[in-house]
Write a protein that binds this DNA or RNA. Structure first.
Lengths: 204, 204
DNA sequence: TATAATAATGACATTGATGTCACTTTAAAA
DNA sequence: TTTTAAAGTGACATCAATGTCATTATTATA
């Protein structure tokens, strides 16, 4: 009888493996990431790491879940703000001032999805994630409508999809060039003005 | 002395290998593509294929060159049209009515660039290609300005970058969902109206 | 302090793909 | 019809990564 270690000990181990793995995913990308990298980064043997996560995909999906729930929380927080439009603008302003190297996990996600795009089993999961993101955005926009803040020119769903399209596009662009060379800020400003127009933001 | 076959014989071989390879890239994606696939598809042995192309990247880049020059030609043709705006709209209309499975090489390209984004040697090449695309678009838009067709609200470069961003984004989106589920047509229409506005299209 | 459950180790078999090369075939020219 | 240079073959050595498992170490409990 008696387990060797406490539950929190194991959770801490898991957490530290995930943390190391995330750094490596960002540094090397999904494709180039190998389990040996994690084994080297964490104070554990090959078998040890494998007893927590049995392959790289499991590691990746675990990290993805986390960033998923962070995303949901952020959107939900936004919905609580008195002015949704202002909190959206603020979010983009932060995005503009963030350093080039931040939030590179977005690129890893796109890479993972691209690599697996032709495997039917994975496709279902990907669709669900896309749907999930769209639904959250629609909910946020809808809150603004009931607020009287928005008077949309297009169906909210269409606006949400367009939003995601721009986001993915700009994500790809930052992979090739740094924000300065990209005219990043100008692109964001233009998109914001389009978004403002589509949502029919009511000036108060 | 004397070479065994004619020059055109070898060129034909090369062409047929490239053709088969392109199909496989589209079917399996860049990452999953292996040389054995090509060997099986073409009536040649392992060593035979390798004597034409020494690895998968060489194959890919060769195909990329082709689709590059096709792209340039298309843009140049557009610039010759009496109304550039109309030819742009026509192009997007064709894009809308194209079947879901067409032009999937775009996804392969993005996949390749994503996978190699962290290798400095490759990065230079990627930047150049991006620059190349931007320059072509600027030239096209500029033609419209000298035409008196456009009266742009933003620098042409910014519009060109925004254009590419939308394009990449919609490319990614079509990977996850089919055009119908995506609201593809609605997204294109919205983008066209934004583009029309940014370029300041003068109605004639 | 003994013991037993489980955490951790790392050598190893396996896999799957790559690129090469000694050899064979082919066909144009001598 | 020979010769010979180049085209084509496919077995093979190599490599890099994976996941496993017999073994060892550790520690909470009895």
């Amino acid at each position: 009888m008696s387990p060797k270690v406490t539950k929190s000990y194991k959770e801490e181990r898991k957490r530290s493996i995930l943390e190391a793995a995330k750094k490596i995913f960002i540094k090397k990308g999904y494709e180039a990431f190998v389990m040996q990298d994690v084994i080297d980064a964490v104070d554990l043997s090959r078998g040890g790491v494998y007893s927590y996560f049995s392959n790289k995909e499991e590691l990746f999906l675990s990290i993805l879940e986390d960033s998923n729930s962070t995303y949901s929380k952020e959107i939900e927080d936004m919905a609580k703000h008195p002015s949704i439009w202002n909190s959206l603008v603020k979010d983009f302003e932060e995005y503009k001032s963030a350093s080039d190297t931040e939030d590179l996990f977005g690129a890893v996600q796109i890479e993972y999805f691209l690599i697996n795009r032709l495997l039917p089993e994975k496709k279902i999961y990907m669709k669900e994630r896309y749907k999930f993101a769209i639904e959250h955005l629609i909910k946020l926009f809808d809150e603004g409508v009931t607020n009287g803040e928005f008077n949309p020119k297009y169906p909210l769903e269409t606006i949400a999809r367009y939003f995601i399209t721009f986001n993915d596009g700009i994500n790809i662009a930052t992979i090739f060039l740094n924000k300065k060379d990209l005219n990043f800020n100008a692109q964001i400003d233009i998109f914001l003005s389009h978004l403002e127009n589509m949502l029919g933001v009511v000036k108060q």
